[in-house]
């Protein structure tokens, strides 16, 4: 590769060093925190008490506990369900459908829908969580409109169907991103290619499924990569809505990690959880990055 650096920069080591400083600090900090979590995952460090100062190495004990004790595997399963339904099925598919259907429609309808889904995205997590809890609880809006007037007993949705409600809330919250990304991707598909398919006799559905979708495949993979990682580690909305409950029904890995580290104070075990999450997300990313590659 050609060396494109400015000759003045490359000849002046001091300037070069200064210029790299912010990046170096950032990379250093990232490495430091990762290394910290990794190192303490082999200890019994606690948040408070004696073990917060006199911690000791415990080898792989924390990692064994991930699999032998109740908690981790259940949370992993909850997370998988949450990610699959809210991010992959919900946000991605809904975002794509909206983007595909709203293309070429009247601008007012489009604007209204866009504003609505953007509102969900822009609202702070805590506010959104409060809204959803208030709407779905025993005295909430849904009961007041759809249940009580028909003579049924009010249902405490957020308690009875905690995971589905949290999933729906996250779909509502995150669809805007997928919608925007897919809109941009569909805009990049040449109009003439779609018209050629039209002349070739493709129905609107076939035009999307057989032409546009395969063309934007790299965008889909990128989007999956982003939203899977985000959703996998997503914390505030769920925690503020349910705190992981009732019981452990909505305890995703991020909530589990928080509970272990800061409610129970097991920082060492918490570090092991975060290392495990890092590994899982890393593996998922590899899968998506493979998808990003062009077929031969």
């Amino acid at each position: 590769m050609k060396n494109q650096a400015n000759p003045w920069l490359t000849s002046n080591l001091l300037v070069l060093g200064l210029g790299m400083l912010p990046a170096a600090v950032l990379i250093g900090a990232l490495l430091y925190f990762t290394a910290w979590a990794f190192a303490f995952s082999f200890t019994d460090l606690a948040l408070v008490g004696k073990k917060s100062v006199e911690w000791s190495w415990v080898g792989l004990q924390n990692f064994e506990r991930l699999f032998t004790r109740k908690g981790f595997l259940e949370s992993l399963w909850t997370t998988v369900i949450f990610v699959f339904f809210s991010a992959i099925v919900g946000q991605s598919v809904l975002g794509f459908l909206l983007a595909a259907l709203l293309r070429g429609t009247q601008s007012t309808l489009r604007s209204v829908v866009e504003v609505c889904i953007m509102l969900g995205w822009l609202l702070p997590d805590i506010v959104a969580a409060f809204l959803w809890s208030a709407t779905t609880n025993q005295t909430g809006l849904i009961n007041a409109i759809f249940v009580v007037p028909f003579g049924f007993k009010p249902i405490n949705f957020i308690n009875e169907y905690a995971l589905p409600i949290v999933t729906i809330a996250n779909i509502w919250k995150g669809t805007a991103w997928s919608y925007l990304l897919f809109s941009a991707a569909l805009d990049s598909v040449s109009r003439e290619v779609v018209e050629a398919a039209k002349v070739d006799g493709a129905t609107p559905f076939q035009r999307i499924w057989l032409v546009q979708l395969p063309i934007i495949r790299p965008h889909i993979a990128t989007n999956m990569l982003f939203i899977t990682i985000w959703t996998f580690t997503y914390f505030p909305l769920i925690y503020a809505m349910t705190g992981g409950g009732p019981g452990t029904q909505t305890q995703t890995l991020a909530v589990f990690l928080y509970n272990q580290s800061f409610s129970r104070g097991n920082l060492g075990f918490g570090s092991a959880i975060s290392v495990a999450m890092l590994v899982i997300v890393g593996l998922l990313s590899l899968v998506y990055l493979r998808m990003l590659r062009e077929p031969k």
Binding site: S190, E192, V193, E195, A196, V199, I215
Partner: peptide, 14 residues
């Protein structure tokens, strides 16, 4: 019963 040839060729890239 028509066929069209476009300026940008409009081939299906995939």
């Amino acid at each position: 019963g028509i066929a069209m040839v476009f300026q940008s060729y409009a081939l299906y890239p995939h």
